[in-house]
Design a protein around this nucleic acid. Structure first.
Length: 274
DNA sequence: ACATGCACCTGGATGC
DNA sequence: TGCATCCAGGTGCATG
C-alpha cells in the first residue's frame, strides 16, 4: 500500500501524538505479524516503555523507545496505523493495540495481513535486511544525480525494475515509479543502462518532483491508505498515468495503456514514453 | 552478482 | 444472488 510519501504522512500525523507517551499495554490479535522476537517477548519488552521519537526510513517506521529498543513497522500493502481516542470506532481489521498512558490508543490494522512488526535494540537493526541494505532516498542529500546516473549505467534490468529495487533507491513504489517515468517520458521497459545522461537527469528530477508532490498532498489514496488520523490523501487527483488506463494522456491526448512490467501493473502513455 | 517468478494474504470490483 | 476471475501503494526467497 504505502510508499514513501504515504509513510512520511503517517509519520507526520503521529509523531507529536506518540512522542513522550508511555505504552501501558499491548494487545496482539494476530501474533504472526510480529516477526521478531516472539509475540510474547514483543509484548513484554514494549509494556511500560516510553516512545521518544518517530523516524521514517524508506517505507519503514521506527518508534524509538526509552530503553534503547526500537519498534519497527512495515505496512506492506494494506497496513494502517491510527491514533485513536477512547470510544472512537475501530478499524474492522484491527490486529494490534498499543494502549497509551493518556488513555488513547495507537492501533495497527491490516486487511491482507502482510505487514511486519519487529522490536530490537537499536544496535541490532542490521537484522532487518530490507532496512540495513536500503539505498538512498529521493530528496535526500545522498540521492545525487551522480549516484543515480552511475547506478543506472551499471544495470541491465528494465528501468521500472531498477526504480522499484529498494537497495538502489529507498522508498519508491509502483505508483510513484509509473508517475516519474511518465513525467520523464521514458518507457518503463527501457533497459536502465540505455538511458542517456539527459534522460537520467530528467528522471532524477521527476522522481524528486513526484515524491515531493506526494508528500505535499498527504499521499495517494486508492483504497486502503489513510494517514495516522484516518484521513485520505489527495495526490490521486494529480496522477498522470497510474490508475488512468484508457483515459487520455494530458500531454498528448493519446490513450493511457496498462501492461505488466517487472511483475507489476504498469500505466504509461505509449505515445509520450519512449 | 543479478534477474525473474512466485509465495505470502484477504477482499473489492467486475463479469457471466 | 451466486460464483469465478482478476486485481491490489510490497518484499523475500527459490531458481536459473
Amino acid at each position: 500500500m504505502p510508499e514513501m510519501p504515504e509513510v512520511e504522512t503517517i509519520r507526520r500525523t503521529l509523531a507529536d501524538k506518540v512522542a513522550g507517551r508511555k505504552i501501558i499495554r499491548v494487545d496482539i490479535g494476530l501474533p504472526r505479524l510480529v516477526k521478531w522476537p516472539t509475540a510474547a517477548e514483543f509484548q513484554a519488552v514494549l509494556t511500560d516503555r516510553t516512545i521518544t521519537k518517530l523516524v521514517r526510513r524508506g517505507k519503514y517506521l521506527l518508534f524509538y523507545l526509552d530503553n534503547n529498543y526500537v519498534l519497527i513497522i512495515h505496512l506492506r500493502m494494506t497496513g494502517r496505523l491510527y491514533y485513536k481516542t477512547p470510544g472512537s470506532e475501530f478499524d474492522k481489521f484491527t490486529h494490534i493495540l498499543f494502549k497509551l498512558d493518556n488513555g488513547d490508543i495507537l492501533l495497527y490494522a491490516d486487511t491482507r495481513t502482510l505487514g511486519t512488526l519487529y522490536l530490537m535494540p537499536e544496535e541490532e537493526l542490521w537484522r532487518i535486511a530490507g532496512l540495513a541494505s536500503m539505498g538512498p532516498e529521493p530528496l535526500s542529500a545522498e540521492f545525487t544525480l551522480e549516484y543515480f546516473a552511475d547506478m543506472l549505467s551499471k544495470r541491465r534490468a528494465k528501468i521500472k525494475t531498477v526504480l522499484l529495487n529498494q537497495k538502489l533507491i529507498g522508498g519508491l513504489g509502483n505508483i510513484y515509479v509509473d508517475e516519474a517515468l511518465a513525467i520523464a517520458c521514458i518507457d518503463p521497459e527501457r533497459i536502465a543502462s540505455s538511458l542517456t545522461a539527459q534522460e537520467a537527469n530528467y528522471l532524477h528530477q521527476a522522481i524528486n518532483q513526484v515524491i515531493a508532490a506526494g508528500i505535499a498532498h498527504g499521499g495517494t489514496t486508492f483504497r486502503d491508505y489513510r494517514d495516522g488520523a484516518g484521513q485520505s490523501g489527495s495526490h490521486q487527483r494529480y496522477l498522470q498515468v497510474y490508475g488512468r488506463t484508457n483515459e487520455p494522456c494530458q500531454r498528448c491526448g493519446g490513450i493511457i495503456a496498462r501492461k505488466e512490467v517487472a511483475g507489476r501493473g504498469t500505466h504509461y502513455c505509449p505515445n509520450c514514453q519512449k
